[in-house]
Simulated assay, not measured.
Amino acid sequence: MQISSRFSIALHIFACVDAFQATHKMTSDFLASSIQTNPVIIRNILSQLRRAGLVRIARGTGGITLERALKDISFYDVYAAIEPVERGALFRFHESPNPNCPVGKNIHKILDHKFTDIQSAMEAEMRKYTLEDIHRDLLCLNAVQGAVTQRSF
């Protein structure tokens, strides 16, 4: 199991919108230049974020705005929008273990609640972090590095 890079790309998009929206047109090309990926990938992720009610997109004008304050969008919100899990379960279990095997007939009973506990812990941890944390950390790092939020890439 691995969470795809689409999750970190989505967080990167939010950081760019926060850092540059006052000074730059937020287009998929602009965002792709920071992320160094194809603008089509950016548009697909933005569509998922829009469907989840996290961003508003003004087509043609490059207007991407947040639907909620940074402090009100958690990593979990972004994760749920970008990495929807099948039937609500993070772990996919093999479908038909051998019912005649002492391990096969019991493996679901042994692992199901453990998998649920692990997923719950991960989701709870993701809810602790918000886009405001990224904003604050980016400001601190840029201050230390002497960077300014101007497009230099």
Rank of each mutant, 00 (worst) to 15 (best):
M1D: 11
A69F: 05
L11Q: 01
R51C: 02
P102M: 03
L66K: 04
F153D: 14
S96F: 11
I9A: 04
F115L: 14
L66E: 00
D72E: 07
A147C: 13
V144L: 11
I35A: 14
H113D: 15
D77M: 07
Q150Y: 11
L90C: 10
E67F: 00
G146H: 11
I82F: 02
G63A: 03
R127I: 01
G146Y: 12
I35F: 08
G63E: 07
R136I: 08
R6D: 10
L66C: 04
I64W: 00
T37L: 04
G63W: 01
E86L: 12
I110A: 11
L49R: 03
Q48A: 06
A52V: 04
L46I: 06
L141P: 02
G104Y: 09
L46Y: 00
T61C: 09
L46R: 07
G63S: 02
A89L: 10
T27A: 08
M26G: 02
F93W: 14
M26I: 14
H94A: 13
D77H: 12
S152Q: 12
E83A: 11
A121P: 00
T65F: 07
K25C: 12
D29M: 03
L111R: 05
F75T: 02
C101S: 13
A69N: 10
T23K: 12
I41P: 03
R6N: 11
R43T: 13
M26R: 00
A32V: 04
V17C: 05
D72I: 01
H113V: 12
F93C: 08
L31P: 08
K105F: 10
R92S: 15
L141I: 14
S5Q: 11
F93D: 10
R6T: 02
A81H: 04
I35H: 04
N100D: 15
F14D: 03
I107A: 07
G146S: 10
H108S: 09
D18Y: 04
I45D: 12
V40I: 15
A69S: 13
T130N: 01
T65H: 02
F91I: 15
E132Y: 09
E125W: 07
G62M: 05
L54I: 01
D77L: 08
Q150A: 11
K128W: 00
C140F: 15
M126T: 05
I107N: 05
I45K: 08
T61V: 09
E86I: 10
G146N: 12
T65Q: 06
K105S: 15
G63R: 03
I45L: 15
I57Y: 00
R68G: 01
V40M: 04
L66N: 06
F91W: 12
K105Q: 14
S120K: 14
F20S: 03
G88I: 11
L111P: 03
K105E: 09
H135W: 05
R68V: 00
L49W: 06
M1T: 12
E95Y: 11
N106F: 04
I13T: 04
S33P: 06
E123Q: 11
N106P: 00
V55E: 08
N38I: 02
I9L: 01
A52H: 02
R136G: 01
V78C: 08
I82Y: 00
T116K: 14
L54R: 01
L66D: 01
S5N: 13
P84C: 09
P84S: 09
N106C: 02
V144E: 09
Q2I: 15
I9G: 01
C101N: 14
D29P: 00
T116E: 14
I118G: 05
T37P: 01
A80V: 07
